[in-house]
Design a protein around this nucleic acid. Sequence first.
RNA 1: GGCGGUGUAGCUCAGUUGGUUAGAGCAGCGGAAUCAUAAUCCGCGUGUCCGGGGUUCAAGUCCCUGCACCGCCA
Length: 569
Amino acid sequence: MPRTLITSAIPYINGIKHLGNLVGSQLPADLYARYCRARGHEVMFICATDEHGTPAELAAAKAGKPVAEYCAEMWQVQKDLADGFRLSFDHFGRSSSHQNHKLTQHFAGKLDEAGLIDERSSRQVYSVADGRFLPDRYIEGTCPNCGFEDARGDQCDNCTKQLDPTDLINPRSVISGSTDLEVRETKHLYLKQSLLKDRLDQWIDSQQGWPVLATSIAKKWLHDGDGLQDRGITRDLDWGIPVMKGDKPWPGMEGKVFYVWFDAPIEYIAGTVEWADATGGDWERWWRTDKGARDVRYVQFMGKDNVPFHTLSFPATLLGSGEPWKTVDYLKALNYLNYDGGQFSTSRGRGVFMDQALSILPADYWRWWLLSHAPENSDTEFTWENFQGSVNKDLADVLGNFVSRVTKFCRSKFGEEVPADGEWGTAEAALIETLSTRLKAYEALMDGIEIRKAAAELRAIWVAGNEYLQEAAPWATFKEDPAKAAAQIRMALNLIRFYAVLSRPFIPDAADAMLAGMRTEQDTWPSDVDAALRVLEPGHDFTVPDVLFAKITDEQREDWAERFAGTRD
RNA sequence: GGCGGUGUAGCUCAGUUGGUUAGAGCAGCGGAAUCAUAAUCCGCGUGUCCGGGGUUCAAGUCCCUGCACCGCCA
């Protein structure tokens, strides 16, 4: 049995994600996980919330809550939304878990043993009023170059000049507005990625079948300019994983935590440990090549912007540890989804957010549209007209109406059971032939994680059913040859079950409704189309399901377009 | 400023290593059918493949250049 480990980039804890975030990682990962399970793979599908860092602290402060409490609440919110979208994680973890604390500290210790950690002093801005060091972008002041008054410590938004916080005139804390700032000496750990450059280079060269996008981004970072830079892996914050060398204190690093980019990817592993702790499962056979993970295929999903972390930073941690950790075999990077002529914007409230989406339509509508329009090759545009058109046509008309016309016709002519009379002829043989070809194409596309093309192929499979029905015309044959009509409808009813099985990765709820309507739990992936279309035997009873997909009306569309427009600039 | 991406039918997008009349879905137009959520099925595309040069027997596909939009700059 093939074993597939799947991770989705972990969403930041700070707030509810929009549909662009969803389709950028979690949703395609879920599609693939569901498909692999359907094909009989043993699957471990892990996601989590990314909880550390200054933005989480500030969001908690704004909400008037301790950061741990805030994160716990937001984790639950994100978990519920993931459930609402039917994201089938085996475990949805938290990067703040004690499992991740332990593993992150373990990796730091191993990297230090391998001579890959440096302690370096630097001078950073400290806010006396806030009682903390301030990251560059949390300091604002007047730009020395152009005089812009709200320049940030890393860059002036007005003249785009790159700045150092100490360049700013009249610097102030973004957090409190305090101007009581001073520059203090502080010490941090650096991961000497530069020493790993050759190993990473070789490792990337040894990868088979990575998308060129991923390889080229990785190579660019590896070779451009001065090559791969060492990176600070600690911060002067309270909220995070305390810096320790394995389970021992790290002298001189008291009160400091690991930087979020260091501990976040480790949560992929720690999340699996969380799963194991909760279920009694064995996480090492997924992650340690010396303990059974050698035959695991590891597939990562992420947004384009996350590629360097997954191709370089995280592998640097894994390879640098000197331990036999499983590294990624294939990675799927997605582009961005735009909203109606602009970007989705969390800060401006522009676009549709996960909670809002579920409040107006069931998950399957969104899953279908987002996946069938997934931004694989380039950025993609969401418009309400396109959404309404695609969903109404594909789901309501092509698929939903097929189920409706078949079951209702059968009920009125033969009753609510699979009719027994008649034999299949050449039309049915031709249909089986067509479906066999298309099924193979669909499988190949799903295996290759070509999401849009797979969706198009699935739709073509639905269309084939309507074509068959149109040609067979059981409503006409019923008049002269009821037995023939019975055979045709027996085929059509079986198509519904067949479609439910194939469609399930995309639209799990509708698929379940179709199976429930057909009163069957036989949902094995078809290996032989002819046999798969004989599963519902003569006499098998069914019920006419409720309308699977109600159409989106023009009024709804206009209302939603208005509601989610947000503030344009 | 540097780097990268994108620009193909009204809309959303495909177009392998350059090779016959540039494709799909939707929308639109015409027809068939009437079982069905006024759904389905069939037929219909004279598109400056962003502009301009160039390489080639042959370029949407390679090179140069201009324009537009969009990202990234640790």
